[in-house]
Amino acid sequence: MFAKTLISIALALSCVTTVQAQSLEIYGKINVTAQQSDEGEGSFGELKSNASRFGIQGDYALEDGLTLIYQLEWEVDPSDEANEKNIKSRNQFIGLQGAFGTLTAGRHDTALKMSQGKVDQFGDYEADIKALWRGENRMSDSVAYSSPAFQGFKLMLSYVMEDEADAEDAQSYALVYGDDSLKESSWYASVAMDSKINGYDATRATIQFKIAEFKLGAMLQQQKEVNTGKKADGYLASAAYPLNKWELKAQYQTLEDDQGISLGTDYKLGKNTKVFAWYSSFDFDSKTDSDYLAVGIEHKF
């Protein structure tokens, strides 16, 4: 019922604001896999939704060269039973754009999370980099700033308010260079840092580039638990290669003695639709190893 209500509101907004708004878009994607999973207690089959989502985003031209922007996005799970936990909030904010850059307030991915670009070839799946690393945070009570590009460089900042009397504020910073889609430039790079985000400090460096048709990427990360001071280091290497309608992908990630390796392939059925398969295996030092084999379909709208 809640999902139907949200969709009704979205459709109503699209009708009411079309005349006034500069632009308004209803968008989303459905990504579902059938997978065989083994997390240490035996293999089992399951159907999983991988960050399927829908949202509304738009902008509105103001005076003095300003533009109002907004986004309301929710994650949905078409593979799970219908209940109040089926819908989760994702990025939801309002903000202003101008010659100064972009400033938003609400719930937003941190600067460090956004700095990864598209290096993670298995994002939203079992081998998403958050499987081993801290720093993949979407924070409430966030004020986020993104500067205009200057000679290819852009600065991103996130400030997370305390929200409680005995809590501390937190910050995330990133400096990025190039186009993370590798369409306008042949390489992308970033350095980023979290301070007290979800109890961790983290530093991350990222690079991705194209050689012929290959997309090659690498990331380095150091993270520290604020309360204990415990540090951990890791690195990631990824590769992708398009072959007609196919794309072949591989990725390797570590954090100290923990490591994961993934292999996969995508096949385009159309501009917004693909089928895919992947295998991921994790070797953990302090917990049970895990393996996953999946096939799935994704459609964007």
Rank of each mutant, 00 (worst) to 15 (best):
T5Y: 11
S8T: 11
L11Q: 15
C15H: 12
V19A: 15
Q22M: 10
S23L: 05
S23A: 14
G28C: 00
K29A: 15
T33A: 09
Q35H: 07
Q36M: 11
S37P: 01
S37F: 04
E39F: 04
G40P: 01
E46D: 14
K48N: 13
S49A: 14
N50D: 06
S52C: 06
R53I: 06
F54L: 09
G58M: 08
D59L: 09
D59I: 01
L66S: 08
E73C: 03
W74M: 15
V76G: 04
P78E: 11
S79P: 06
E81A: 14
N83A: 11
N86I: 05
R90P: 03
Q92M: 15
Q97L: 10
F100D: 09
F100K: 10
T104F: 00
A105C: 07
H108R: 13
D109W: 01
A111G: 08
K113Y: 04
M114R: 13
G117Y: 05
K118C: 01
Q121V: 10
F122V: 00
G123D: 14
D124H: 02
E126A: 13
A131E: 06
R134A: 13
A144R: 09
P148C: 09
F150R: 04
Q151S: 15
F153S: 00
E162Y: 03
Q171N: 13
Y173T: 06
Y173P: 00
A174L: 07
Y177P: 06
S181E: 15
L182Y: 05
K183C: 04
Y188G: 08
A189T: 08
I197C: 07
I197K: 05
I197E: 02
A202S: 15
R204T: 07
Q208W: 04
F209S: 10
L216Y: 06
G217V: 05
Q221H: 08
Q221K: 12
Q222Y: 02
Q223A: 13
Q223P: 03
E225N: 15
G229N: 11
G229Y: 09
Y235V: 01
A237I: 14
A240C: 05
A240L: 04
A240K: 01
L248F: 13
A250W: 02
G260W: 06
G260V: 14
I261E: 06
I261W: 06
I261R: 05
L263G: 09
G264E: 07
L269Y: 07
T273P: 02
K274G: 03
S280Q: 10
F282C: 03
D283C: 08
F284S: 01
S286K: 12
T288W: 00
S290G: 08
V295Q: 01
G296F: 01
I297K: 03
E298S: 11
K300M: 04
